[in-house]
């Protein structure tokens, strides 16, 4: 997944590096807070970067006789916390680019975004959901699988966009010659079928061992009561503000009805759409006949939130 130099245009590399700057800044600030509690975090990031390097170097056997390597993004996020993992993985990627020939120098920002941000944060979020539902291992396995696949998807989008972004006057791509229709299936197929499973299995087995041998060393996120208060506040705010959508005129792009589509296309709507399945929802357009429209919006938002809350309660274990 390490993108080499010349596969991304310098403009894309610049954008990705700029996108990484605030993430690294926040990571440093978060880790500084972590250091106040556990002072050994400073050297631990350096040593963990070395561990990440060895994980990426270690070839694991896969059925069929070939080998693949894990990245360990989700595992490191679970062991050290996502912010520290982001810094450790970025450091590993920097050294790999400068000294070991894995990944480019210019593409460092893009590689860091894919492997040091998407992977640990997505993986850690899945693990946290699993932990809340008292299925840590399943959460970690799903996190590792989804994390590496999302990172591969991001890398393939970055690569596949190049023919659109940078091409000569006769249309010849200047950088990665493959479009999205090739990069996405090529990258995702390999990760969905092989690398994702390797990553998930590797993460779970190492986690299982550490949890048995030294459970105290696992990262525990600081108390989140405050952040959850903010989250609930945000949720209520969004429910109240949901009728704001009514201010926008017209319909969303691609959500046209057959009549509107006919009007926009200036021809008849495609046959497949006119003769397709037509489902009439109970509360079509978030409204009930005879009810005030903004109130209908608020009720719809509240209903969705409550349905998801009930589903979460059903899935949760009893204490």
């Amino acid at each position: 997944m390490h993108i080499p130099d010349n596969y991304l245009s310098p403009a894309t590399c610049g954008v990705m590096l700029t996108a990484m700057a605030p993430i690294w800044t926040v990571s440093v600030l978060k880790v500084k807070a972590q250091i106040k509690e556990k002072k050994e975090t400073v050297p631990l990031i350096g040593v963990a970067a070395a561990l990440a390097f060895l994980i990426m170097m270690f070839n694991l056997p896969i059925p069929g006789g070939t080998t693949a390597h894990a990245v360990g993004g989700t595992l490191l996020a679970v062991l050290l916390g996502p912010w520290a993992a982001c810094l450790a993985l970025s450091l590993t990627l920097l050294l790999q680019a400068l000294l070991f020939g894995d990944g480019g120098i210019l593409t460092f920002g893009a590689n860091a975004f894919n492997m040091a941000v998407i992977m640990p944060f997505v993986g850690y979020a899945c693990y946290q959901i699993g932990r809340r539902l008292h299925h840590e291992k399943i959460g970690l396995a799903i996190g590792a699988y989804v994390g590496i696949n999302l990172a591969a998807l991001t890398a393939s989008i970055e690569l596949g966009l190049q023919p659109l972004l940078a091409h000569s006057s006769n249309g010849t791509p200047l950088y990665c010659p493959y479009g999205l229709n090739i990069t996405i299936p090529a990258m995702l197929l390999a990760h969905l079928l092989v690398a994702g499973w390797v990553e998930a299995l590797f993460s779970v087995l190492v986690y299982q061992f550490i949890k048995k041998a030294a459970p105290d060393t696992l990262y525990r996120a600081p108390a989140t009561a405050k952040s959850f208060k903010a989250f609930y506040g945000l949720l209520i705010g969004l429910i109240v503000l949901s009728p704001l959508g009514l201010l926008a005129s017209g319909t969303a792009w691609g959500e046209w009805s057959n009549q509107e589509l006919t009007h926009r296309l200036h021809t008849a709507a495609p046959v497949g759409m006119t003769h397709g399945v037509h489902f009439n929802a109970l509360f079509s357009d978030y409204a009930i006949h005879g009810l005030n429209l903004p109130l209908g919006y608020i009720l719809s938002a509240l209903t969705a939130v409550l349905i998801f809350a009930v589903l979460m309660r059903v899935l949760q274990h009893e204490h």
Partner: peptide, 16 residues
């Protein structure tokens, strides 16, 4: 492999 890298992680913490 789980044992190998689990032990390596614990060693990492010790070193740190």
């Amino acid at each position: 492999i789980g044992l190998l890298f689990g032990t390596l992680y614990l060693k990492t913490r010790d070193y740190a």
